[in-house]
Structures are given as C-alpha cells and as structure tokens.
Simulated scan of single mutants.
Amino acid sequence: MIDRVTTTRVIYLGGLGRSGTTLLERLLGELPGVVALGEVVHLWERGVLAQELCGCGVPFPACAFWRQVGERAFGGWASVTAHRVLMLRHRVDRTRRIVRIAHRDLAEYAQAYRLVYAATGAAVVIDSSKHASLAWCLVASGMDVHVVHVVRDPRAVAYSWGKAVARPEDGRPMTRWGPARTALHWTAQNAALELLARRGARVTTVRYEDLLAAPERTLAALVGELGLAAAVPGLPFVDGRTAWLGPSHTVSGNPMRFHVGRVELRRDDAWATGLRDGDRRVVDALTWPLRHRYGYTEAAG
C-alpha cells in the first residue's frame, strides 16, 4: 500500500444509469491530465473478482494500467481486499443510510477509493459510479470532490431501462427495470444529489438534453465550472455534433465505454413514440415534481 496519498481531484458523475453519464465521462476523459476510471464502485466485484474487460478491451488482470494502480495502492489486487471493500460497501454505502452517512466504517471504506484515485498518478480522475450514496461517502470523508449531477428525462430513462441490451463483456443481457421501479430510483437518486448540494457540497447539474443539443457550449461551460478550462485551449476533440474518443481504462459501465474513434452527438428520443401511454403515466406520476424542476414537461425535451 502506498504510504502517502497525494491530493487527487475527483469529478464524480452522479445520477441514475441510462442518463448519459458514460458519454459525458468519455468526453471529459479527453481533457489533458484527466483520467476516466469508469464506475469504480463496481471495480471490486466486476474487475478484481470477475476479471471482466477493461475499457481498453483486455481482461482486468491483464491491463497494465490497472495492474500498476493495484500495485501502488494495495501492493497488488487481492480477492481479500475486494471482499473487504464489498462488505464495507454493504454496511456504509446505501441510499437509505444517507441521512446517517457518518458510519463507523466510513473512513476505511472511503480510504479504499482514495488509494485507487491517488494510485492513478493523475491530477484529476473521473468516477462515473453514479450512486448518490457513494458521492455522500466521498464528500463526508473530506476528499476533494466535485459532483456532476447528470439528469435525463425520466420517461427516456424508463424506456432505456426497459430495453433488452447485451453486455459486451459476456453477451448476457443487461439489467432491465420496469417503469415504476425506474421512476422511483430516478426520484431517489436525484433527490439525494439535490440534498447533497444543499448540504454544501460542490454539485453542478447538467441535463443530457442540453449536452446533446449544444455539445461544445455545454461541455465548455462545464469544463469552466470544474476549473479545467486552463488545461486545454478549446475542445479539439469536439467538432459540432461529432466527437473523437481515444482508448480508455474504464471499469464497468455502458457499452459505450469500449468505443474508440468518431461518435455522433445526437439525442435519442425514441421514448417519445416507443414508451407506452400507461407506462408514461406511471413515470409522470412518480417523478413529479422533480421532473418539472428540471424542465421536463409533457412534451419531449
């Protein structure tokens, strides 16, 4: 284990899955000095234990980047460490425990993440774990964290969670949720991140729809808010509605984490015609009033 933890800035992408966090992470990861890590909350189970693919396309144990991180942080990845962190996560990192996040095991749990971040050697890392509870843990432990709260229309999110999508890692279907469950999780995660901001944490909200409507303008504003504007003159990897993405070393996340090369930055509004009327009414009822707070009225967008 490394003896001294250097100060590493953490950009934490929070929100409910299928809200565009992977795309935003990949874009921010193109900035000089910024390293995108993927969903670090799943590193222990899916990376260390299950040995799934890194975003670079090779199994986690064979990835030189993650092998070096493990050696610096813990003297090498070991199942005993992963199981310990997972046990601590069950004790500490739960949405229902946010109001009492000062758990006796919080310091040890947060330290595992602190060591991973520092071991990358990067000045700034992006953790797209999404979970509001982990954001609370990192902030409560005193880390230098700036939370980017990513929001998407809950009806679009519900439609996405209902689709059958194969995991590139093993071909198995990704988790599917019904509209009611998705709506309840959407409300819970966004409300928790709103509360975190009210408690004084640095939280910047970005709407998926705004990012895709005006990619350069929205991304430039966010880069400025995060204090990263001085790192790069403009955004050379974005040209209008087109972006170019290099390889990444992300653990877990949307299949887009494997994409390298050109990507078109266009909204997916298939939900507007694909979401059944009954499902839409359920989502509308369970996500009000936050849905209106974020500007999502009855019409798409």
Rank of each mutant, 00 (worst) to 15 (best):
D3R: 13
D3F: 08
D3E: 15
V5I: 15
V10C: 13
I11W: 04
L16Y: 02
G20Q: 01
R26Q: 07
E30P: 04
P32C: 08
P32V: 10
V35R: 12
G38M: 04
E39R: 04
V41K: 12
H42W: 12
H42S: 14
H42G: 00
E45D: 14
L53R: 13
G57S: 12
P61I: 08
A62K: 15
F65P: 09
F65I: 09
W66C: 04
Q68E: 15
G70T: 06
F74S: 01
G75V: 02
G75N: 11
G76E: 11
W77L: 05
S79W: 12
T81H: 15
H83F: 13
R84L: 11
M87Y: 14
D93A: 03
R104A: 11
L106Q: 05
L106P: 00
R114K: 06
R114I: 03
R114H: 09
V116E: 04
V124K: 03
V124R: 01
I126M: 02
S129F: 09
S129Q: 06
K130C: 01
H131G: 09
A132L: 10
L134Q: 08
W136Y: 15
L138M: 11
L138A: 07
V139K: 03
V139M: 09
V139Y: 05
D144W: 11
D144R: 15
D153I: 07
P154K: 06
V157S: 02
V157I: 06
A158T: 02
Y159F: 15
Y159K: 01
S160F: 05
S160G: 02
S160C: 04
W161H: 13
G162M: 14
V165R: 13
R167V: 05
P168Q: 07
E169K: 10
R172E: 15
P173M: 10
R176W: 07
R176G: 10
G178Q: 06
A183C: 09
W186M: 07
Q189V: 10
A191C: 06
A191T: 13
A191L: 14
A191E: 14
L193C: 00
E194G: 00
L196S: 01
V203I: 07
V203D: 02
V206P: 03
R207V: 02
Y208C: 08
T218R: 12
L228Q: 04
A231N: 07
G234V: 05
F237S: 08
G240I: 09
W244T: 10
W244C: 05
G246H: 01
G246I: 03
P247F: 03
H249D: 07
T250E: 13
T250Q: 14
M256S: 00
F258A: 00
L265S: 05
D268R: 12
A270W: 06
T273M: 09
D277H: 06
R281K: 12
R291A: 15
Y294W: 10
